[in-house]
């Protein structure tokens, strides 16, 4: 039987105020996790804020599809208080995805559903068809 989740990372891989990008498609996951190059844009990223994990699509609402980190896994502003799009410096609340400063202010990041932690792992629930 195929698992209904993919393991993105160990829980300890993303500490408070940190972010990390992933390509959760099973065939790409190892490569996304191991490839530190920014050339392969992450599909999504995960941020830990006040203990909770939040998953967002790596797509700025200002220019949909445009990647947000300035280098691999760097999705936060300098202080770690906000998610930041490093195209034009737009700032987003890490828990709600609301843009509070920048070109898309008032807009929202797109949440990635199915993110959870279990057995010391950060996992993403997926449909069986995708997992297979």
């Amino acid at each position: 039987m195929t698992a209904d989740f993919v393991r993105l990372a160990a829980s300890s891989d993303i500490a408070e105020g940190q972010s990390r990008g992933f390509d959760p498609r099973p065939a790409r996951l190892d490569r996304s996790a191991n490839n530190r190059s920014g050339g392969d844009s992450d599909v999504m990223f995960v941020v830990r804020h006040q203990g909770q994990l939040y998953g967002w699509l790596n797509s700025c609402p200002h220019i949909p599809g445009s990647p947000m980190a300035w280098r691999k896994d760097a999705y936060l502003n300098a202080s770690g208080s906000h998610v930041c799009c490093h195209a034009h410096g737009a700032l987003f609340e890490p828990d709600t995805g609301l843009c509070v400063q920048g070109p898309c202010q008032g807009g929202h990041l797109t949440a990635v559903p199915g993110l959870y932690e279990e057995a010391g792992e950060i996992r993403l629930r997926i449909r069986a068809a995708v997992a297979g």
Partner: peptide, 9 residues
């Protein structure tokens, strides 16, 4: 630059 980890736009 990309292979050092930077993100192309």
């Amino acid at each position: 630059f990309i292979e050092k980890g930077y993100q192309a736009f």
